[in-house]
């Protein structure tokens, strides 16, 4: 579990290149560091729901990223806030 304020890194994983997959983690934050804003609740894992498999509930977090960590070309204090499932997050 992660708590608000925790530094996290999104896993640099690409399951869509290993076979049929349905992923709710945008490509542009993979491998990028951000900060947990809050735990939004636990929801059935869409990666299983998408294939009509039994889906366990997994924690969902709101994670904030500095946009210049993703695309360095723009104004640094802008942010991107994304819902990311816990199994995509690791401690940097």
């Amino acid at each position: 579990m992660f708590a608000p304020g925790d530094r996290v890194r999104v896993k640099d994983a690409w399951p869509e290149h290993q076979g049929p997959a349905h992923i709710r983690t945008p490509y542009y934050v993979r491998g990028v560091e951000g900060e947990v804003v809050r735990h939004l609740g636990d929801f059935a894992n869409p990666e299983d729901l998408a294939f009509a498999r039994p889906a366990a509930k997994v924690p969902l977090y709101h994670v904030r990223f500095r946009k210049d960590r993703i695309w360095p070309e723009r104004k640094p204090d802008d942010e991107i806030l994304i819902e990311i499932f816990g199994h995509w997050l690791e401690r940097p």
């Binding site: 869409p46 723009r74 104004k75 802008d78 942010e79 819902e83």
Partner: peptide
Amino acid sequence: RALLASEWKTVIPDDVTLRVVDSTAD
């Protein structure tokens, strides 16, 4: 910022933080 200015004429001043919320899940 450029998107909002060019398509909607909405200008977000430089001293205002723009937080984009990508609605990815539930």
